[in-house]
């Protein structure tokens, strides 16, 4: 080992590198979350965190658990495949606490035209009306019952 006269400083440099690497590995071990790499190059616990977010739309199965009378009416009409919250809005809070959270009464003059206002881009077999000509701004539930919208016998017009 006499080929290098001043080999000592190389060993000191190597020691600094080794110490730096060790420090890096220790810090990295502390900072990288445990679940990183559990399923792939990402934090595995992120999946659980996203899955734990709260739900706003309860789902029609929950509604139907209590409102069997509405289900009965709806299942016979053309709106049978339309989910409750499609019109009534997100009501998971109502499902959790039916007494204190009450859904608002809907205005059918504004609600029904969301789907049924005439538009050339809609499929031709979808029932549509030009609401101004059809009812002159009158609320749709004057003649149609939203849960089963066929014309009501004895309804006006």
């Amino acid at each position: 080992m006499k080929s290098f006269k001043d080999a000592g400083h190389l060993f000191r440099l190597a020691a600094v590198f080794v110490a730096g690497l060790a420090l890096f590995l220790i810090v990295r071990g502390f900072l990288v979350p445990r679940s990183f790499g559990q399923y792939g190059h990402y934090r595995g616990n992120a999946i659980g965190e996203i899955a734990a977010l709260p739900v706003s739309y309860a789902g029609h199965q929950v509604c139907e658990g209590c409102h069997t009378d509405v289900l009965e009416v709806k299942s016979k009409g053309v709106h049978k495949a339309v989910a409750c919250e499609s019109c009534h809005g997100p009501l998971a809070k109502h499902a959790d606490d039916p007494a204190s959270v009450q859904p608002v009464k809907l205005d059918t003059a504004k609600l029904c035209v969301r789907c049924h206002e005439e538009n050339l881009a809609k499929p031709k077999n979808f029932p549509q009306v030009a609401s101004a000509d059809h009812s002159g701004g009158a609320a749709c539930d004057t003649c149609h019952k939203p849960h089963s919208p066929a014309m009501v016998a004895g309804g006006s017009q």
Binding site: A52, P54, Y57, E85, S86, F126
Partner: peptide, 20 residues
């Protein structure tokens, strides 16, 4: 809607889509 489909629900958009 990963928070819904992992609980056995469908997504919010599929839930409310009136035409399927």
């Amino acid at each position: 809607c990963y928070h819904r489909i992992t609980k056995g629900l469908t997504t919010a958009c599929c839930e409310v889509c009136p035409t399927g």
